[in-house]
């Protein structure tokens, strides 16, 4: 096998793995933001987003 093929394979595999990593991060972010938006649209709020008077627990 020509040495060029080893170089091409190394760069090709690196490009695929990095593209897969980027895709995973982008899709994961998008999915989580969609879930957050859906919960907020249903009126669910995070504890820290509630006004102080409405909460009785002090867990942060």
């Amino acid at each position: 096998m020509s040495h060029d093929v080893y170089v091409a394979l190394a760069y090709g595999i690196t490009a695929i793995v990095i593209a897969a990593l980027i895709l995973w991060v982008v899709l994961d972010q998008r999915a989580r933001r969609t879930e957050l938006s859906e919960l907020e649209a249903r009126g669910v709020r995070r504890r820290s987003a509630l006004p102080p008077a409405s909460g009785t627990d002090h867990g942060g």
Binding site: Q29, R32, E35, L36, L39, R46
Partner: peptide
């Protein structure tokens, strides 16, 4: 993404 995942989890529990 991980912070948002934890927020989603916490909001679902609430």
């Amino acid at each position: 993404a991980e912070i948002w995942r934890r927020r989603v989890s916490s909001m679902r529990r609430r």
